[in-house]
Design a protein around this nucleic acid. Structure first.
Length: 107
DNA sequence: ACCGTGACGGCGA
DNA sequence: TTCGCCGCCACGG
């Protein structure tokens, strides 16, 4: 039973606003949603019922590390996430961190 | 209705 | 500069 709460729907909608080749952070999303907790955003993405429709792979932590993907904070899925972003033109640092200029801000 | 947990963030030591 | 702790909102059991 996919219990989609209004908050989650809001997160997905906003996330779809992120263009290809750019990434955003949980904090930025939270702020845009006027929410003080990025964890809430992460929780929503974790339970993301719209796998490919919602580009949850374009969301990284505020320290620009990959964060999580498909319910995992590390593992093969994360590698896939990185590959996906690379395929979209997002560049990474030597420490598996996205370049700051690739960050998308809701302005 | 209550408590514990979480794909996080920021500040302090 | 790196590691650790507390705080935040929302959700599941």
């Amino acid at each position: 039973m996919t219990t989609i709460t209004g908050f989650q729907q809001r997160v997905y909608k906003l996330l779809q606003k992120v263009p290809k080749g750019k990434v955003t952070t949980y904090a930025i999303l939270a702020k845009a949603l006027n929410c003080g907790s990025s964890q809430a955003v992460g929780g929503a993405l974790k339970r993301n019922p719209f796998a490919p429709e919602v580009p949850c792979h374009r969301v990284v932590k505020s320290d620009r590390s990959l964060g999580g993907f498909y319910g995992q904070i590390e593992g093969p899925q994360i590698e896939n996430k990185k590959a996906l972003l690379l395929a979209e033109g997002v560049k990474f640092d030597a420490d598996n961190k996205v370049m700051a200029n690739c960050l998308w801000q809701f302005k």
